[in-house]
Design a protein around this nucleic acid. Sequence first.
DNA 1: TGTAATCATCGATTATTTCGATCGTAACAG
DNA 2: CTGTTACGATCGAAATAATCGATGATTACA
Lengths: 292, 292
Amino acid sequence: MDLKQLKTFVVLSKNKNYTRTADALGYAQSSISAQIQQLEQELNTKLLDRIGKKVFLTESGEMFLPYAVEMLTLASTIKDRIDNSLSSHGQIIIGASESLCIFKLPAIVKSFKKTHPNIELHLKLIENDQVVQQLTDNTIDIALTIGNPIKHPSITSLLKKREEILVLSAPTHPLASKNVFAIKDFANQSLVLTSFSCNYRAAFEYDLKAHGIPYQIALESGSVQAIKEMAASGLGLCVLPNLAVQKELTANLLNALPYKNNYNIYTQLVCHDSKWISPNLADFIDLVKELI
Amino acid sequence: MDLKQLKTFVVLSKNKNYTRTADALGYAQSSISAQIQQLEQELNTKLLDRIGKKVFLTESGEMFLPYAVEMLTLASTIKDRIDNSLSSHGQIIIGASESLCIFKLPAIVKSFKKTHPNIELHLKLIENDQVVQQLTDNTIDIALTIGNPIKHPSITSLLKKREEILVLSAPTHPLASKNVFAIKDFANQSLVLTSFSCNYRAAFEYDLKAHGIPYQIALESGSVQAIKEMAASGLGLCVLPNLAVQKELTANLLNALPYKNNYNIYTQLVCHDSKWISPNLADFIDLVKELI
DNA sequence: TGTAATCATCGATTATTTCGATCGTAACAG
DNA sequence: CTGTTACGATCGAAATAATCGATGATTACA
């Protein structure tokens, strides 16, 4: 059973005339005959009687008609709903690193919600090392992370922006006034660090270890806010991307040490190769590109 | 959009595996791919994502699924209802002559209702000369008439049974005791006749006129019952088919005069050539054939 | 009785569907 | 890291189905 046939039947039921139905639907008259015969065969009944020159619905036809109309209505409802939903409904699940969640996504979400008020945005805090897995499992639609470049044969990078990693101290910290910095100046310092899987922490620690610089970890926390406050209160140095500490730098709550590094840390927007980019998701991606 | 495609989509949504779906539905795997692609094209969206080795419904697919199921349900409901209705629902409109309505149809209807309790039977009293027109207009499904053979290029006779036409009198009538009858014996008699369009009345009157026999019409009535009572009370002779007077003959309320005639009067069951004979109607026809 | 209207049917053409074979990718085992 | 297996996509060929135009049959109507 085909919508085409149903439509033909419905129109024919109104017209009671094959030739005019054919004209109306853009078929040859013989095609209308054929389509009706197909339907009749499938339903195993006769839908129309042609008595003399006139066409009548049989009892079966009379019974079938409202169903045919309903099927057509249903089908067009589906199409409408899918069309509308693509623009005005649905959800996007975003996996994001904590710092981006706090310092970048609020502006993005706010702006996206203005143009797409009915799209549900779900933020899911994820660690860098979970990104590929969660994209592969389709538990997130897209990931916005900060860390080393993600290289995986079936992951596509939609956006890649280098981030400056700062080592910061409280303004009152003994090192705060130093103008020139080398790695050895960190010897025996206390550090307030992000979690182990954080790539820029790893890069900085690797740096220290490679040069045989001793250091102590005063605190390790998953919360960027906690780290900043600890560091500001003089507990130790912290290592954070520039984007996470702009307020504190402006307010002079933290002081960026002039230590030059070249860590390969990027903000990246990535998704799975095979993921279908819905129009809404595409809009979101464009917005992220624009605002980051 | 095709039920075939919808079914494929629904099964595939459960399986999340093209190959197994193909096996289940008896297609090649490539055909499943093709069908889904057709659907996706028609709906202008992607229904399924294949991420890695696994198949996921996209948001659109998720939304579409319940509709697809509903369409399939609706379609199978239709088929069921049409099947059932053919055996257990519906109506038959029977056009019938008055005498058959009174003396034959009650038994037929009673018997038919036993086996087909849910079929509505509509009896429509029609004159002989209306039969062809009403079959052609499809205002009756079938006609059961008594009269001259119906000859029309597009009318089919399903049953044809000669009926004996009797001339009857009250038992007390002066002619009642006569043993041998000829047409001239009707000279100057009073007659109680059926309506003008009645074929056996016409045949009898033609008979009289052809032989130049004078007669009077005491009463003309559309009601067979009235005619019989008038005749029984001695108002005049009446002309009726045997089947209409069996009770009165047995009860000796009327007396059949031994007048031999050869009128071409038949009980006939007729329908239009092009009329679709539904199973119910076929059953009804069989029953009429059996009981007449 | 001839003519116009109408639907069914037929054969040819075109479009679609299906299939089998093959390719590419991902998951998994060794 | 590599070979193997499982899986869906893709392609071209074959089978099937849809469509058309022409024709035939029937009916209504002038």
